[in-house]
């Protein structure tokens, strides 16, 4: 199987879907002639032309809203946000329009749009470019939220998202774009709402999404090698819909849960998972549910301190050990 980057996996997904369905188009700042600020759309403008791959002015509210309007008419916009942090100037369009129109129209309208881009901290660019809004968006019934951790998942989830008839907020990660992984040629889909056990274990469940999954995998190796603890790593992949069954099955097996989340702790994704475990896994648990999240402060610019703000393998190991 070919080994390609997370970035290339996404690029391949776009090429597949642009070829398959003429209603699919890509739009965003610098996605076309510049080849993408993070080169995720590299070569697509040259290959598919200006009708299908479109550079926008710096007007997030307008081009997000344009995407909603075009999607209502049956097109399938894939709208790039250079950073998900920039969604905040267009939140009205995502929440009130993409998120609510189907409901408010009594089901007459649907908005088959993908809004995508990186949503992560850890890149030394300060608070305004480091937001992780998956919790905000997943808080809106009507929206779907996906956070792939690997190249294989990125491609399969992207193709599924483009074919989905609802709006999908697809969150990538600039720190993962260069990661390599095995990815099949051709189109395949990974259904939204299906988590994956990325590592089997029996002693503790590490539950995470996005880059934190890789942090968990690294922590699991340390736990196994140095502490004889076999951690199971559950990758949520999709925040909404959420695969609760896989989470609960894992915790029923391991009896311990440590939630690892680059989202903030207050009302973050891990809060939702903790509530789920409190409600449905209470009798399975041998220890309190613990969390390792981003520190509860705006992302700091200073590089060494920023590293402290995000979960790393050592912090996860320490937290796991504290639960025994």
């Amino acid at each position: 199987m070919p080994v390609i980057t997370y970035r290339q996996a996404l690029n391949d997904a776009f090429a597949e879907e642009l070829t398959r369905d003429e209603n699919v188009f890509l739009m965003g700042e610098e996605v076309a002639q510049y080849n993408g600020a993070y080169k995720v759309t590299e070569g697509l403008w040259e290959r598919f032309g200006s009708k299908r791959v479109i550079d926008t002015p710096i007007s997030e509210a307008a081009f997000l809203g344009l995407g909603v309007g075009a999607a209502m008419m049956g097109l399938r916009p894939v709208v790039e946000l250079m950073f998900w942090s920039f969604a905040y100037v267009g939140f009205d369009q995502i929440i009130n329009n993409a998120g609510c129109i189907r409901y408010m129209s009594g089901g007459l309208i649907n908005v088959p749009m993908v809004v995508r881009g990186p949503a992560n901290g850890g890149t030394n660019v300060g608070a305004t470019h480091s937001h992780t809004p998956e919790n905000f968006l997943a808080n809106t019934p009507g929206l779907k939220v996906v956070c792939p951790a690997t190249p294989y998942d990125a491609k399969g989830l992207m193709i599924a998202s483009i074919r989905d008839n609802d709006t999908v907020c697809f969150m990538e990660n600039t720190l993962l774009y260069g990661d390599l992984g095995e990815v099949p040629d051709g189109a395949y889909t990974i259904p939204l709402g299906v988590a994956e056990v990325k590592r089997e274990g029996i002693d503790v469940s590490l539950i995470a999404h996005g880059r934190a999954v890789l942090t968990c995998l690294a922590a699991a190796e340390i736990l196994a090698a140095e502490h004889g603890i076999e951690a199971e790593v559950v990758d949520l992949r999709s925040i909404r819909p959420l695969d609760e069954e896989t989470i609960l099955n894992s915790v029923a097996k391991t009896h311990r849960a440590v939630l690892v989340d680059e989202n903030k702790p207050f009302c973050g994704v891990s809060s939702q998972i903790a509530a789920l475990l409190a409600e449905h896994a209470f009798d399975d648990l041998d220890a309190p549910v613990l969390r390792v999240t981003a520190l509860d402060a705006p992302a700091i610019y200073s590089m060494p301190l920023e590293k402290l703000q995000l979960p790393d393998a050592q912090a996860v190991v320490a937290k796991v050990l504290s639960s025994f």
């Binding site: 307008a62 809203g65 209502m72 009130n96 329009n97 129209s105």
Partner: peptide
């Protein structure tokens, strides 16, 4: 709303519909 009559709402947030209209024109 009445999409079958080419009528796309009916929107509560002031000017929130203006980019949706742009999207309709884009699709046209």
């Amino acid at each position: 709303f009445a999409p079958d009559k080419h009528y796309w709402g009916g929107h509560g947030i002031v000017a929130g519909q203006t980019p949706l209209g742009l999207g309709l024109a884009f699709a046209i």
